[in-house]
Design a protein around this nucleic acid. Structure first.
Lengths: 252, 252
DNA sequence: CGGAAAATTGACTTACATCAAACTCAGTGG
DNA sequence: CCACTGAGTTTGATGTAAGTCAATTTTCCG
């Protein structure tokens, strides 16, 4: 763990100053020229406890982030889809294992290099911070889902957020890919595989979704699904519950 | 939301460069000369959705971070105790309401000022990053607790992490303060108040804990409690489950 | 003290887990 | 091309942990 820090500072000194085209700073440009690794289904990219020396971008495929309890239970903390980053918000060591769900290509960037790049670039820092905060928001949302929602609500919420990730958040039917097996969904939602199945079957019977093979679904009525998701994270936030207080204003 | 960004950059230009005594950079020193606000039990420090323009340090007391679902269910995302920071890891707006559980004094620091201070100070940046990552780790832990553990395990885990926060993580009996009402614990653990009570009563019967009034407990057998907590987050991490693979090593 | 809010305990219900049995379907080899 | 196979999924019957409803009991505070 501390070894990684040493390596990190040593590397940093040796690395050349990095200059961006100051306009186009995106994730893509960050990883554009980085080495690409291929992974088959089931392979691990890194393990919980490994020194977190690398940051990744998923160019293609899908990963699951999981943690095994001593007695064998498995928690899935999240999924990472194409276009998203991996391994950014950890300190010395990764706190989960990243395993491949669908054959993946990953671009890789050493943390040392990333920090060197950050050095001058205000813009990059805030880009990365924004990612970290997004992850934080997602985690908090997940906490609410697991702590407060029932099985149907959890599954509905999962489907909706999958739909949202596709970008197109329309009123029209959306087709979502679910590359992970049912057991992964169950472990992600804190349910059993049977319960996930039963809920999906119910949604099918009720005409909310239609199966497109094992690994894809058409969501027929987003709004209706949203009703079953405890209505959390609707785009239009609901009114303040009680005693509408004006936001606290602090003296400058 | 965007207004806050504007204010932020405007302020920044006007703010003086900040110089630290380069040795002693701690949270304490950061907030040392900041204005202090007092809050009574039940008061809100800020609301979910407010522009996140301030960062706080709890000098004294205890807060709960909560989010109300449209149908009235309440999720408690976390508690903040004396010495800890509040409101750091959010972007434009706070994503939860912060309410006072035990009469509190808070030191306050504007985000604009904080960013200005960061500017030069490498050290401060990494201090803050470390805090953010700690929060992330805690959130992921919470996800595992809510998704995988049963009622007894959740309560046991809650007590143990409370004990850990006191600092002294000895083999000896530890006394912990639980300033929040039972309902808060329930909403934090995704249980009902009755279940929390029953589990606590069981722990009392079994001699694991002893009540010290409503708001304090003596933990008699940390190790025994740990057994009931699904053994997650023990100090000594268990062995790799299967197929011990050496950590991935990436070419420099 | 007295009264109200918080906590605890008990009886009963229910949502989800568990156990067990089919069913589906993507490969594989005859 | 089609039967065979086995992993993944779905469905059904039953069990149980935790939720709900309803009293008490405790504790705190005026």
């Amino acid at each position: 763990m501390y070894a990684s820090h040493l390596i990190l500072s040593a590397d940093r000194a040796a690395l050349p100053r990095f200059d961006f085209p100051s306009e186009t700073l995106t994730l893509e440009s960050l990883f554009a020229n980085q080495p690409t690794d291929k992974f088959a289904t089931g392979e691990a990219v890194f393990w919980e406890g490994d020194a977190a020396s690398q940051v990744f971008q998923v160019a293609e495929g899908c990963l699951r982030l999981c943690s095994i309890l001593p007695d064998g239970r498995r928690a899935i903390i999240g999924f990472v889809f194409a276009g998203e980053m991996l391994g950014l918000s950890c300190h010395g060591t990764y706190r989960y294992t990243a395993e491949v769900v669908a054959p993946a290509r990953l671009r890789r960037l050493s943390r040392a290099r990333l920090r060197a790049m950050e050095e001058g670039t205000e813009q990059l820092q805030s880009l990365l911070m924004a990612r970290v905060f997004e992850e934080m928001t997602a985690a908090q949302q997940h906490i609410i889902v697991l702590g407060q929602l029932g099985a149907e609500e959890r599954v509905a919420h999962f489907l909706i957020s999958a739909a949202r990730r596709t970008g197109a958040d329309q009123k029209k039917p959306v087709t979502i890919e679910l590359p992970m097996p049912r057991l992964d969904i169950a472990d992600y939602l804190g349910l059993t595989i049977e319960t996930v199945c039963r809920v999906l079957s119910k949604f099918k019977r009720d005409g909310l979704v239609a199966p497109r093979g094992r690994h894809a679904l058409v969501l027929r009525q987003l709004s209706n699904l949203q009703d079953r998701a405890g209505e959390i994270d609707n785009d239009a936030p609901s009114e303040r519950p009680v005693a509408v207080r004006s936001p606290a204003v602090w003296p400058a």
